[in-house]
Design a protein around this nucleic acid. Structure first.
Ligand SMILES: [Mn+2]
Ligand SMILES: [Mn+2]
Ligand SMILES: [Zn+2]
Ligand SMILES: [Zn+2]
Lengths: 146, 146
DNA sequence: AATTATTTTGCAACTGTGTTGCTTTTTTAT
DNA sequence: ATAAAAAAGCAACACAGTTGCAAAATAATT
């Protein structure tokens, strides 16, 4: 994949917003850009800082919520109760997330990764239970920290 | 298993505390009792309410933290960022939790269950990643809500 | 391009959760 | 019974997240 110019990225961001019937605003552009130029997942704090204190805290909360609702980003649960967000790469849309990959939290660098190629396993539940979504978070040492 | 008398339970609680080298106090007794007479997991709020507003909020926090540290209870992560606690049934101890079961959250009654008999699956990770703990939370409809 | 309608933002104020320092009370050891 | 150690309660605080509302920005219409 050739490296994209800043302009190409901007176009891509705008089209992503329009495709989701969202007004194109500074905060949405900036926050989407952060996600695109970031590999791992981001905590709310990272995003607030990354946006350069240019936007109000409330705007960041509302923007993230909007993106989750539209299926643009998804939430990653962690044991320490600190929500992380990451871009959806599957065919998620308004009202339906289809993220079937697992998540990895590195104990060393503390980064959170979407392992898009590792699908969630089938879990055999006891009689009477029926499964909807399965969430898997693996904790360990990541590629870069070995 | 024969139904235990109130007295038998009290003895069991006290011995559990002593085994973990913890002073036997009212709050610890009461909170352990809540866990024992409860099937599912409990949120902090449930515990605070269940204890009958008899103890300070801070005491409840500190008691739960102590129990987690000692390997008496474990934390269950959820997507909505609300921590739940449940008794450890495996051989957990101070500094080492060994809870290898999965967790189930019912979308209907909103209860959280430890499925002690369902062990966490082996996850095949991409080259370079090494797994430590694996956390699985399944969301769906529970036995009682079908 | 200008006007209007709609949506989003920022601000302030508030709520809820969890933490910390310190004093008093309770529990444990002697 | 006394002394030492641990835990509880209180007050104050820090921090995350929410809400209502007026101002600003964006989108739709003329
Ligand atoms: Mn993901
Ligand atoms: Mn459990
Ligand atoms: Zn790492
Ligand atoms: Zn249920």
């Amino acid at each position: 994949m050739p490296k994209q110019s800043a302009n190409e990225i901007a176009v891509r961001i705008e089209s992503l917003l329009k495709r989701n019937r969202l007004s194109v605003t500074d905060s949405r552009r900036k926050i989407l850009q952060l996600f695109l130029e970031h590999t791992g997942a981001m905590a709310h704090g990272d995003i607030e800082k990354g946006a350069g204190e240019k936007f109000d805290r409330v705007t960041v909360y509302r923007t993230l919520q909007t993106f989750v609702d539209k299926g643009i980003i998804h939430i990653i649960p962690t044991a320490d109760n600190s929500i992380r967000y990451a871009l959806c790469k599957d065919d998620c849309g308004e009202g339906h997330h289809h993220d079937h990959h697992i998540h990895f939290v590195c104990n060393h660098c503390n980064k959170t990764y979407c392992l898009d190629d590792v699908v969630t396993p089938d879990i055999k539940l006891p009689r009477g239970y029926s499964a909807g979504h399965v969430e898997v978070v693996v904790e360990g040492i990541c590629k870069n920290c070995q």
